[in-house]
């Protein structure tokens, strides 16, 4: 990557990132599976869950879905956690995710558009 030489360049870099590569914002039009991979999540098996999700996405050939590893969302008791971010929709948080739950997230939530009935955490956190 080249150095960013001015504030204007930083602003442009940000706009480009939001459109093209960032997996965070709805502008990108992508579906994101965010797996909490901080120490507690990893200790609870998050890496395995991420592998299973990746495997399932490839196997079932689901398009436009990306997995990212995030830090800790703060709900240690419910690790491993997976957040499903779909463009234009409210995030759905799954807790206590097992390998089976991970497969269902792909086959039911992503492929059929039906969020699971179990494992959903109702999290409301204000980020001002």
């Amino acid at each position: 990557m080249d150095k960013i030489g001015s504030w204007d360049e930083l602003k442009r870099f940000r706009e480009d990132t939001r459109k093209e590569t960032s997996l965070l914002t709805p502008d990108s039009g992508k579906t994101i599976l965010a797996v909490g991979e901080a120490t507690c999540g990893i200790a609870a098996g998050a890496k395995k869950i991420a592998e299973v999700l990746q495997d399932e996405i490839e196997k079932r050939d689901v398009k436009n879905v990306y997995i990212i590893a995030t830090g800790c969302f703060g709900y240690c008791y419910a690790e491993p956690m997976v957040e499903v971010r779909e463009p234009g929709k409210k995030s759905v948080y799954y807790g206590y995710v097992t390998e089976d739950t991970a497969r269902e997230i792909v086959s039911e939530h992503l492929m059929q558009g039906k969020p699971l009935t179990q494992n959903i955490l109702n999290l409301e956190v204000r980020i001002p």
């Binding site: 965070l24 965010a34 909490g36 901080a38 995030t70 830090g71 800790c72 969302f73 703060g74 956690m81 957040e83 409301e124 956190v125 204000r126 980020i127 001002p128």
Partner: peptide, 12 residues
Amino acid sequence: QVRIALRNCGVI
């Protein structure tokens, strides 16, 4: 919960 310090944790 209001997140300022943790605003990006678990998000990015």
